[in-house]
Design a protein around this nucleic acid. Structure first.
Length: 314
DNA sequence: AAATTCATCAACCGCAGTTTC
DNA sequence: AGAAACTGCGGTTGATGAATT
């Protein structure tokens, strides 16, 4: 049953890493690649637990990390992403190449929070500090905690200007959001609530309780719409297509390869994290189970792994 | 110059979801 | 099926250096 413990805590070092430890970790990963954190410390001759090694590598030693101060553009991007995603630091970090979730989290707490407050904005809600009417509701419903279970299957749309597939609002969408420029592809799931409410209301008798529920739903709908549309100038195409990490020679062939891991993982939309790194974008509509949709004709399925099929002339 | 406060950030902790046995 | 381990995430802590008193 189960497996042996990941490490013997009594024999592990804690606290700051020494240069020697860093070098051992770098050397080991250079040869063997990332992953298998459980067995890594022993194999690399480190008296650390795997978790600690992983953290050290991801947050400090990775060669693709960007050093130095955050730029003004990065600041604004973080603010926008946070307004939409909440404290989903790993998701935010995914949109900022070379930055780690930990780094962004720290930067948020030490700099951006103050910056927003100085602008008269609540760092959690991104609303004016004196806006008491909506702040309370928003505070209990940050974007990352919104319930997206009620969404309708989206239609896949190819943005002709970029040949990028974007899953767009199935009914109405501000057209400028998809044709302004290359950065304006945003996945918008339109929660099917208004329509449903109308149907429900017209199809049967409504009690006081029902009406209250409807009011609550409408209120929630407004909040969701607010979060969905407020950052429509932001590229939040959550299809999975991050840069491959090329310095890991053994990774692609191992069972730990990004693609095999992608196949193993269940991907969720909004509020949870797409974790793998792959070499090509993956059609999100397929990943979330809409691959049978007539609308999605641009995907190919290889071993049950759906990908965009990019036109040759793109 | 010493003490205190503040700011920064690496590292740890605990948890949830996933995977393995 | 279910127990236990693995992985990754977000929140928090604590060490350190800078700024202030």
């Amino acid at each position: 049953m189960g497996r042996s413990p990941c490490c013997e805590k009594a024999h592990t070092n804690k606290g700051a890493w020494t240069k020697e430890e860093d070098q051992r970790l770098i050397d080991y990963i250079r040869v063997h690649g990332e992953g298998c954190w459980r067995s890594l410390p022993k194999a690399a001759g480190l008296l650390r637990c795997g978790k600690s090694c992983r953290l050290r590598w991801i947050n400090y030693l990775r060669p693709d990390l960007k050093r130095g101060n955050f730029t003004e553009e990065e600041d604004e991007l973080i603010i926008k992403l946070h307004s939409l995603l909440g404290n989903k630091w790993s998701l935010i970090a995914g949109r900022l190449p070379g930055r780690t979730d930990n780094e962004i989290k720290n930067y948020w707490n030490t700099h951006i929070k103050r910056k927003l407050i100085s602008r008269g904005l609540d760092p959690q809600t991104h609303r004016p500090l004196n806006d008491t009417t909506t702040a309370a509701a928003a505070a209990t419903t940050p974007a990352s905690r919104l319930d997206f279970r009620n969404i309708s299957p989206p239609s896949a749309v190819v943005d002709k200007t970029t040949n990028k597939n974007s899953i767009l609002h199935h009914k109405t969408i501000n057209k400028t959001s998809s044709n302004n420029n290359n950065h304006n592809n945003i996945i918008l799931f339109k929660p099917k609530m208004e329509e449903d409410n109308i149907e429900e209301a017209s199809s049967g008798t409504t009690t006081e309780e029902d009406q209250q529920q409807q009011q609550q739903q409408q209120q929630q709908q407004k909040l969701q719409d607010h979060y969905m549309y407020k950052c429509s100038d932001l590229n939040l195409d959550l299809s999975i297509g991050l840069e491959p990490f090329q310095s890991e020679p053994t990774r692609a062939s191992s069972g730990n390869s990004a693609e095999s891991r992608l196949q193993q993982n269940n991907y969720k939309v909004f509020g949870t994290v797409q974790k793998a790194v792959v070499t090509q974008a993956v059609c999100l509509c397929c990943q979330v189970g809409f691959q049978s949709s007539e609308a999605c004709r641009n995907c190919q399925c290889t071993n049950g792994f759906y990908r965009f099929h990019r036109p040759l002339n793109s």
